[in-house]
Structures are given as C-alpha cells and as structure tokens.
Computed example of a mutant assay.
Amino acid sequence: MSEPRLTNPTLYLQRLGFDAPPPPTLETLRQLQFRHTGAFPFENLATLSGEPVWIDLPSIERKVLHDGRGGYCYELNNLYLALLQTLGFDARGISGRVVIGQPEGAWPARTHRLSLVTLDDERYISDVGFGGMVPTAPLLLDSRGEQPTPHEPYRIDQHVDGYTLRARLGDEWRQMYIFDLQRQEDIDYAVGNWYVSTHPESSFTRQLMVARTGEGWRRTLNNGSFALHRIGQESERREVADIQELIALLDDEFGIRVPENALLIRTLERLIELQ
C-alpha cells in the first residue's frame, strides 16, 4: 500500500495547534492524539444521509478540514495516519473488531481502523476514531499493565488471536476492541467501511453517534441523548427536544456543521422521536 499524501498538512497542523511541523517523538505523538480527539469530533452523520461515505484522503480532508465536519474511524484514523507519516513517524494502519458492550468471547466483523506506531523499538497503538471511549494517549503494545491517559486508564491483554484493548470504568475493566497486526490494504478498509456505512445491521446506519473529548471531559450524543462526562464527577445528561435544538447542539458542543440534506434531516427527526 503506497504511503498517502496530504494536500494541506500546514492547515491540518494549525488546526491541531502547531505553527510548524513537530519532530516525530513520543511527546509529539501524545500531543497529536490528545489534540486530535478534541479538535475533530467522531460523528456518523454521513451514514444517515443516504450518500456514499468516501474514505480517500482528498475527500476526508475536504470534509474534516474545510466543511466543518468530523468522521468515524475509517475517516479520522486514515487522515491521522497520513499526518503521522508526513511528520516522519514509522506508522501503519491495522484493524480491529469492536466488542464494547458485547459478551466476552464475541468475535464480530473487522469494522475498526487504528494505527501502529514504532518509536525507538517500542510499539504503540494510536487511535483517534473510537467515539466516546477513544484513548486520548498512545498505548504501549507490549505492556500488560495499566496505562494512564488524560482520561481513563487502559490496558492491552494479549491472547492467541491478537490483543484486546480494555478501559477501566470504575472497578471494572471493560473490553473495547480486539485487534491484531495483520497487514491491511486500502481494499480491506474499503470493505469494512462499506459494511459500516451501508449494512442494515450496522449501528452506524441506525443511530446517531457523536463524541468529542477535552481537558477532563468527554461529550457524547446518542440519537437525542446528550451527556457531558467529567472525570471524577457525576455525568450531566439531557434530552434533545427537536431538530433545531439538535442542530444547535451539534454546532455548539461538537463544532459540527450539519449539511443541508433533506433525507438526513428527516432521519435525525425520526431518531429524536424514538428516544
């Protein structure tokens, strides 16, 4: 798979708070991942709009950097990997199976994209596209202990089929996704994205999912249910009453500009009514 090329890395870096390209160091990787999850929201409006979800770099750059939008893993982690490679990181894409909320031992389809980064002979996973539980720091692949992040602690369990990422929520270590290091090509991501964005059993085609992180907080929106989660505090929750409130909330809390798409608006109205 050829190394992707960004058309406007300067703008991308500026959106992340960098005036000049930073060096490919662990500290830079930490800053990039944390800032990325705050600057560019996870969202799946595109899968509800009835239009194709394009995951080539020019389409993602236009959508995320110019159109006031975010995206999901096949978009955000594709864009992010291209930035890492542009900055000189030894990084490549890998994939995983999302098991959050599923019973132990579940083995769903490969529908998640993330990145493997090697620095000074240490391997890390770096992920900016996992919704409301996205890790906000790179995680050492070959460490089995608890790893702190600016938000929840995580750990990586190794097993015969690869690895399982877990997050500690309260006293419980909950599984997030299973992944391995198998080589991936563009066609692998195209197939996964096609399933995620079109299959009737995909949650991305049946509900609105939006998330953004910041210093000490996470914001999430599931259909019309908005929540603000603060570290060490009770979550604040409220229900969205109508489409106008939803559009305003997406702009004010997530920085998302809702496209003018009649099917999308009707779908969002229906999802609000179902809550």
Score class of each variant (00 low, 15 high):
Leu79Glu: 05
Arg219Asn: 15
Cys73Ser: 06
Gln14Tyr: 09
Ser225Pro: 00
Leu228Val: 12
Arg30Met: 05
Asp252Trp: 14
Leu246Ala: 10
Asn77Arg: 04
Arg257Ile: 07
Arg35Asn: 11
Arg230Pro: 08
Ser197Tyr: 08
Ser235Tyr: 01
Arg15Tyr: 10
Gly17Trp: 13
Thr136Arg: 08
Asp161His: 14
Gly255Asn: 07
Glu61Tyr: 04
Thr220Cys: 03
Pro21Val: 07
Pro135Cys: 08
Arg183Gly: 04
Leu169Ser: 15
Arg238Glu: 08
Val98Ser: 03
Glu260Lys: 09
Asp19Met: 12
Glu27Asn: 12
Leu181Ser: 09
Pro41Gly: 14
Val98Gly: 01
Pro22Ala: 12
Gly224Cys: 08
Phe18Leu: 01
Arg144Leu: 15
Arg97Gln: 12
Glu253Tyr: 08
Leu208Asp: 00
Thr7Ala: 14
Leu141Lys: 00
Gly224His: 03
Ala262Asp: 14
Ile55Trp: 09
Ser95Cys: 11
Gly50Glu: 02
Pro58Lys: 06
Leu57Gln: 03
Thr205Cys: 12
His151Val: 07
Ile178Lys: 13
Thr136Gln: 05
Ala241Ser: 15
Arg257Glu: 13
Leu140Phe: 08
Tyr72Trp: 12
Arg123His: 11
Asp242Cys: 05
Thr164Asn: 06
Pro138His: 01
Tyr195Val: 14
Gly101Gln: 08
Gly131Thr: 05
Phe204Lys: 02
Phe34Ser: 11
Glu253Pro: 03
Ala20Ser: 15
Arg168Cys: 15
Gln33Phe: 02
Asp180Cys: 06
Leu16Lys: 00
Val64Pro: 00
Leu181Phe: 03
Asp120Trp: 03
Pro24Met: 02
Val98Asn: 02
Thr118Glu: 10
His159Leu: 03
Pro148Tyr: 00
Gly170Asn: 09
Leu45Gln: 02
Asp67Gly: 01
Arg238Gln: 10
Asn44Trp: 01
Thr7Arg: 14
Asp90Phe: 03
Arg206Leu: 10
Tyr74Met: 08
Val240Gly: 00
Thr220Lys: 02
Ile156Leu: 07
Gly255Glu: 04
Ala227Thr: 10
Ile272Pro: 03
Val196Gly: 02
Leu228Met: 06
Ala106Tyr: 02
Thr10Gln: 15
Arg237Gln: 10
Leu141Met: 05
Leu271Gly: 04
Arg270Thr: 10
Val258Phe: 12
Pro150Glu: 07
Tyr195Thr: 12
Ile231Trp: 11
Thr220Ala: 12
Ser197Thr: 14
Lys63Ile: 12
Leu13His: 06
Glu269Gln: 13
Gln175Met: 15
Gly70Phe: 04
Leu249Ser: 05
Gln184Asn: 13
Pro138Phe: 01
Glu273Cys: 11
Arg62Lys: 14
Asn77Tyr: 13
Thr37Asn: 13
Gln207His: 11
Thr205Tyr: 07
Pro148Trp: 00
Leu84Gly: 07
Trp194Tyr: 14
His229Asp: 09
Pro58Gly: 04
Tyr154Ser: 09
Asp252Ile: 15
Ala262His: 07
Leu16Asn: 00
Glu234Cys: 03
Gly96Glu: 12
Trp107Ile: 09
Arg174Ala: 13
Met209Arg: 07
Phe40Ala: 06
Asn223Ile: 11
Pro108Arg: 06
Thr267Tyr: 04
